[in-house]
Every structure is written in structure tokens, then in C-alpha cells.
Design a protein around this nucleic acid. Structure first.
Lengths: 141, 141
DNA sequence: GCTGCTATGCAGTTTACAAAAGCAGAAGAA
DNA sequence: TTCTTCTGCTTTTGTAAACTGCATAGCAGC
């Protein structure tokens, strides 16, 4: 049970954009190099983010990506779910058909609770929050 | 970010034992068949559980596995961690060397928070709790 | 002490999916 | 028109999960 690289890269990407002036356009190559991410892989991730209107794409010379809205308005949950779909700790959490052995499974119940807690945390934090943490910590050091 | 089959099977296995009389011995074949789990795979998982003294093994005719302690004394966290080691949502959560790009990473910070919440839930629930849920629900239906 | 049953331990194989790379093409700016 | 950047596929690679097999060891009953 771990985060995937796609999720990690996606988050690093939007965090990178969040630190820039709102609306400014940054090419993928810059993000990829700055964060040490394979550019083509990042491109694929940003396509998902673009479809979810978290970022906006701009083609052509001096093109790239910009945040589609204020970092304050973008939750971590939004970013993660646009990359990998809704979170589920276990496949049958929402799909009862997969595990039809019993009409009630206490394990599924526990995982649902855990899942809700987890999603709640991701929902409660925005990109702006993370950027703020980063800045505060940097000053402290 | 999902549970592995090993974790799922392991939990189902110990839950199966938890429903039996404390100390009674059940062969793997019975558990495997009852829960629809590949027997050899389950055997491997139970070896881990045995080493962690969550279950006790008994060889020979009428042998099998029994819980090593009362279900009330076994937390879900114990079971899960004995199967897959300590939980980490991201590789660098505890290993700073892996991600040396910055001395502070807000993403890591957030995941640490999430991780602690998750572990807390698993620590707070015992096998006895889950069995109780199961029974109550069954009665309700 | 032989036989059958069950776990043990290690060495495999297979499968699935994440991660990454590649390429032709479209859209846009200069 | 040309260069740049994203777009939308396809394909490859790498790795870990999931599963299998076999020889061995321990135990019980006869």
C-alpha cells in the first residue's frame, strides 16, 4: 500500500506551479528538469490534470502549463483522484460484486473507515497549505 | 495505493481462526477452502504470522494453526505489519536518504500525517472487534 | 519404526501493472 | 512557414505481487 510515482510526480508538478505567480505558464521540460522527473511520463500525468481542469495547457512557442485555479482552491484529493481515480484501499470497498462471499465483511468495514479518514485528510489540505508549510520550514532552517 | 492480496488473505485467515474456540487447531487446507485462497500462498503468509507469534503452528496429523493469543490482544496493525513490515505511504517517509532533493518536503509531511492516522486506526482495532462487528451485522440481517 | 498427514523453507514461475520511452500529429506563436 | 510545445496513441521495460512446486522436517497413530 504505497503511493505511485505518478501520484508523487503529479503532486510535485502542481506544487511547482503553485510556487509560481498565478497564471504564469511553465513548460513541462522545466518542471521535469527541476524535479528530476522523466518528461514524457510527466506529460501523461499532466494530461489527466488538464482534463480535470486543475491545470490549463498552452501549446506552441512559450507554451506549457499553468494552474487553472488558485492553489487555495485545489485540494490534494482533487489532484490525486484526477490521476488515479477515486481512492480505494481494497477493490471491493465500493464494489460489492467482487467479494460476494458474504453480504457483510468486517475487514471491508474497517478499510472503509480507514479510507474515509485518509480521503478526509487529502480533502482538507490545499496546494496553498503545502506551499505555506514549505516556506515556513525553509525560514525556520 | 491498495492493500495487497497477502494482507487481505492474512487478515481473512486470522479472522477465521478468531471465530473458532480459542486454542482450537485448524489446518490450512480448511481455511484456504473456506475463504477461497490458494493454499500454498496462504502457507507462506502464515509463516510470517507464526514468526510474529500471532499464530502457533502444529505439525502432523490433526495439525494446523491456532491463534497464539486471545483475539482481544491482537491488533489489526500487528497482523498487517507482520506480513509486510511497517507501513509507509511513500518510500521516503522514514528514509530521508532516498529523497535528498530538499531537506524539507511538504508532500512527505502530509503523507506522514496521513500515515499516522491510518496506523492509528489499525492499532485501535483488534480481531475481537472485527468478529463482534461481523456477528452484530449478521443478527441485524 | 513405518505410514500418512501437515507445516517448513526455499526456489522457482507466471502475471500484472507501474514506469518509462517513442513517435506521428495537431495546435499555436512568431 | 517554422519552430515549439502539448496530444494521443503504442510499445517496451522493469519490478513486485501472486502463485506453484518440491524436497524436508516434525508429529501422531498404528
Amino acid at each position: 500500500m504505497q503511493f505511485t510515482k505518478a501520484e508523487e510526480y503529479g503532486m510535485l508538478g502542481v506544487l511547482y506551479l503553485s510556487e509560481k505567480k498565478l497564471g504564469s505558464i511553465t513548460p513541462l521540460s522545466e518542471i521535469a528538469e527541476a524535479k528530476g522527473i522523466p518528461e514524457k511520463f510527466l506529460a501523461k500525468i499532466f494530461q489527466s490534470l488538464s482534463r480535470a481542469t486543475i491545470v490549463r495547457s498552452h501549446r506552441g512557442v512559450r507554451g506549457g502549463f499553468s494552474l487553472a485555479k488558485d492553489p487555495k482552491e485545489i485540494s490534494v484529493k482533487e489532484v490525486l483522484e484526477s490521476i488515479h481515480g477515486p481512492y480505494h484501499l481494497i477493490k471491493c470497498t465500493n464494489n460489492t460484486e467482487i467479494c460476494d462471499k458474504s453480504n457483510f465483511c468486517s475487514l471491508r468495514e474497517l478499510l472503509s473507515i480507514a479510507e474515509r479518514k485518509l480521503v478526509q485528510i487529502f480533502e482538507d489540505h490545499t496546494l496553498a497549505d503545502l506551499v505555506k508549510w514549505q516556506k515556513n520550514k525553509m525560514i525556520a532552517i
